[in-house]
């Protein structure tokens, strides 16, 4: 089971921040979440949303292991 984290507006849209989800890859996971919740799917597909796998940004797909942590990160704004 991968641990899935949502940040910023994404957790507001989904109504959760952290969940355990079984999925073979980052893209399969995103597709699964989008199929479950169309509004979340739309938010995940919005421009500027990045994905971190085990606290490193991934571009493209990547395989998940049992202990993977996948974070969906909307546009960042500090300071």
């Amino acid at each position: 089971m991968a641990r899935v984290l949502l940040f910023g507006r994404l957790s507001d849209v989904a109504g959760w921040r952290s969940r355990e989800v079984e999925s073979p890859s980052v893209h399969a996971l995103r597709d699964l979440l989008s199929a479950e919740d169309a509004r979340l799917g739309e938010a995940l597909a919005a421009p500027g949303v990045q994905i971190a796998l085990d606290q490193a940004i991934v571009r493209g797909d990547a395989a998940l292991s049992l202990r993977s942590e996948v974070a969906f990160l909307p546009p960042m704004s500090g300071g």
């Binding site: 940040f7 507006r9 507001d12 990160l73 960042m76 500090g78």
Partner: peptide, 18 residues
């Protein structure tokens, strides 16, 4: 301001916005 992983929500009388 635009690259560090922070997410900022402002709440006021008109509600909240990211």
């Amino acid at each position: 301001k635009s690259r560090a992983p922070f997410w900022k929500k402002e709440t006021g009388p008109a509600g909240a916005r990211w």
